[in-house]
Amino acid sequence: MHISDGVLSPAVIAFGWIVSIVFIAFSFKWAQKHGSIAEQIPKLSVFTAAFFVASLIHINVPPTSVHLILNGLLGVVLGALAYPAMFIGLVLQALLFQHGGITTIGINSFNVGVPALISYVAFRKGSAMGLSKPVIGGICGGLAILLTTVFLALVLITAGEQFEMMAKLVIIPHMVIMVIEAVITASVVAYLAKVKPELLPLDKEDNK
């Protein structure tokens, strides 16, 4: 899921950085509007740590190998702050694990960050409609992975890859991850909704 240095064209790399910087600025604005950022820091750190190690847990799907991403979970639990959280996680992964390149941190953040934001919006809308939180959380967890693989495939097509190969090596193997992350997100949301509902960004707004 991490694109290495030297694969993409400079235009795509520049696009990734610009969009990421804009989204990070936007997400801090959003967080300031929705309560104190200071209160969010412990939650933010814990979930960034989870994201940071998630890519070490991989599953063999011959002829390739896929790993957990957890962007749907971060989107649902952190809201817009998932974007800067994953940006930091990706920087650490690139520096310490050599997962992905340095120049591609921008576009890699875009590939996981935008689906996380979409998941968050979907989770909010779904909850407002009165659907069960764990169910909608699970769907959002899976949706984020699907969107990430589609984004990744589109980005790699700009680098000259063919769509059929992308479908075979990226989208289909990640179906396994989609199911696993749907279950993880549903369980975390079910647990938080029961034990500490105010940790979900959504409930705070509902309470207001």
């Binding site: 412990p42 814990v46 694990f97 997962h99």
Partner: peptide, 27 residues
């Protein structure tokens, strides 16, 4: 409650990261 929750989360993440089978997507 929140401190306990965060402690549990940190412990969980630590235990995941210490699994010997843990391996990465480095090439």
């Amino acid at each position: 409650r929140s401190t306990r929750l965060i402690t549990i989360a940190i412990l969980l993440i630590l235990s995941i990261s210490l699994m010997p089978a843990a391996s990465a997507h480095r090439c």
